[in-house]
Design a protein around this nucleic acid. Structure first.
Length: 301
DNA sequence: TTTATTTGACCTTC
DNA sequence: GAAGGTCAAATAAA
């Protein structure tokens, strides 16, 4: 533990007691910080609710984005704190003095790995995958459904789609669509590979969706939670209609190693965490959620 | 008749 | 052996 040159045992005892009280102090501090973050998140949600009408106008868009961003930041910080708490409780490891900033990637990865052990494994494939969370599955691309499976431990089946240009243009993209456990009206859509069918389609569907604005989200009709099977079985023609999406996008860390269920397992009210850089984009409305979803998630947290 | 979806079987990975 | 992913025949819809 430490080298003792003078009054050894006393110093060890002192050090041990010191580190124990320091650890307890840090733990209390952590609890207090989480409480405050929780409070901040709830207050942000309340403010969002209060201003919901006011912020619907286009000129209030920056303010609305800011508020959503604040809510997302609270959610994200809370998640970091919870991850840290989980780790210190299970490992009994001393709290890292570096604080929250150091706990993102590895801990998130670890959490994913834990849930992976429980629920799923994936075939290795050479393509990168991107998971988004959206209230709709249309993304402007044409998809052909080629399978549906019940997933172990999940109440919703997973549908498998491939690009309609797979055969004529050799487009390799597939996607998996599954309703999230946390919110039946939100789909976890995992895109595997990238469109090669047209020049315009080279950007992934996820990238397309990121261009969607708050305005469209605010003005959209509440048609998000239609019948499960109808939604999932929507023909390509239906998918090409205008989409006003609400989405969260998460890039996988390594090609072929991500899964929507892994990611959705951490979806209980938190901001999206890019495993690559730990950031989410505020340009696409933070994590792309509308007011209702954000508030629902914040309240559920 | 053509095209898309469903679904059980099979394959692959762990 | 279990579970996810894909195939392809059967079926439904346009």
């Amino acid at each position: 533990m430490e080298s003792v040159k003078s009054n050894g045992t006393e110093q060890v005892a002192k050090s041990s007691s010191l580190s124990s009280s320091l650890s307890s102090w840090q733990s209390n501090l952590q609890e207090a910080a989480m409480e405050e973050l929780n409070r901040g998140q709830k207050q942000a949600a309340r403010l969002l609710l209060l201003l919901k009408g006011v912020l619907s106008s286009p000129e209030s868009r920056p303010a609305a984005e800011l508020l959503v961003d604040v809510g997302a930041a609270f959610a994200k910080a809370l998640t970091f704190m919870e991850l840290k708490k989980d780790e210190s409780e299970s490992d009994k490891a001393p709290i890292n003095s570096e604080g929250m900033s150091s706990c993102s990637h590895e801990q998130i990865k670890r959490k994913f790995q834990t849930s992976r052990r429980r629920s799923c494994r994936r075939r290795a494939h050479p393509y990168s995958c991107t998971t988004i969370f959206s209230t709709k599955i249309e993304d402007g691309h044409g998809w052909r459904k080629y399978g549906q499976k019940g997933i172990y431990g999940s109440k919703h089946p997973r549908s498998y789609y491939r690009c309609v240009h797979k055969h004529d243009r050799g487009c390799p993209v597939t996607r998996q669509v599954q309703r999230t456990e946390e919110n039946d009206s939100i789909f976890a859509i995992t895109y595997v590979g990238q469109h090669t069918c047209t020049e315009d389609d080279r950007t992934t569907a996820a990238t397309d969706l990121q261009a969607l604005t708050l305005e469209s989200k605010m003005n959209k009709n509440d048609d998000a939670s239609d019948d499960d099977d109808k939604e999932l079985a929507a023909p390509p023609s239906a998918m090409k209609r205008d989409c006003e999406e609400e989405m969260i996008s998460i890039e996988s860390t390594t090609a072929g190693s991500c899964s929507s269920s892994e990611i959705s397992s951490t979806f209980s009210g938190l901001a999206p965490l890019s495993a690559e850089d730990g950031n989410y984009s505020s340009a696409n409305l933070g994590f792309g959620m509308g007011f209702d979803e954000l508030i629902a998630l914040m309240s559920a947290h």
